[in-house]
Write a protein that binds this DNA or RNA. Structure first.
Ligand SMILES: [Mn+2]
Ligand SMILES: [Mn+2]
Ligand SMILES: [Mn+2]
Ligand SMILES: [Mn+2]
Lengths: 139, 139
DNA sequence: ACAAATCTTTAGCCCGGGCTAAACTAAAGC
DNA sequence: GCTTTAGTTTAGCCCGGGCTAAAGATTTGT
């Protein structure tokens, strides 16, 4: 359930701007989860610094996440994730880590692997992830 | 020359919406070049069909490409690329092909490799491409 | 030559991710 | 307790990628 048009999505060019919004959401929930883990709470200013955008941009994006049931945020309170947000964060982190390790295993430098995995992570299907993992194990 | 802040860009989170605009441009010039090659000319309607968006969206995007010196377009005339647009198309096509072949070589199915490479192509640095090519050769 | 069909543009809207400036709240310092 | 400082929200703007509806141009067919 949920997940309205699972079939129609994932065509090569079904990235109608919603795709980009989803990528942003993935990066945000991942960052929120990581900040909470690292320092107990996540504040808007931390996210602003992390992404290199203004705090205003962060506020607006967090409002969207809240609207979509991914985050919880009350005025002047730290930002938290919902169960749904935590699930998305976990999945995003897993993908990100696999892609990062895979690029390094292929011989890409750490710095570049970090940059490239940050983009690639949003575009790897489960099947491709499996292939990356196979390579990592059998390397 | 050109290329204003080459250093500052390419940080992990320097994808401030301009990145997404660039990705769109890459897909467009690649598609325009391919349509011109396949059938002599490229019309807006072809692009609309190819991307699965409305012809209006295409018009607007092509106007932006023109503004950026990538495409040439006069009212009711077919769309063409500038030298700069052709260069970008060539580079995009190359990256795309390498990523596609690489995923297939890794054992990813054709259909999924096609979908994933469509997104991944925009996020692979030259260094990562080299690594992909090494794998393809030494496979 | 004209009517119909097809293609393209224009107008006007939505949303998401950016921004600056200004107001406001909360936390520290004294 | 009051003031400064740091963090946050609000208001209002820009741009890019979407859309529909309506008008205009071109092509095609008889
Ligand atoms: Mn990530
Ligand atoms: Mn990312
Ligand atoms: Mn992307
Ligand atoms: Mn693409």
């Amino acid at each position: 359930m949920a997940r309205k048009n699972a079939a129609k999505r994932s065509q090569p060019f079904d990235r109608t701007r919603h795709d980009h919004a989803r990528e942003t959401a993935e990066d945000y929930v991942e960052a929120i989860a990581s900040l909470i883990e690292e320092r107990g709470v996540c504040r808007g200013a931390d996210l602003a610094k992390h992404f290199g955008v203004s705090h205003v941009t962060v506020t607006k994006t967090v409002l969207r996440l809240k609207r979509e049931g991914l985050a919880e945020a009350a005025p002047y309170r730290p930002i938290d994730l919902t169960a749904k947000g935590r699930r998305m964060a976990r999945a995003a982190k897993r993908r990100h880590e696999i892609v990062y390790a895979f690029l390094q295993a292929l011989g890409v430098s750490d710095a570049v692997a970090k940059i490239d995995s940050e983009g690639i992570e949003h575009h790897v299907s489960e099947e491709t992830l499996k292939a990356f993992q196979r390579y990592l194990e059998g390397k």
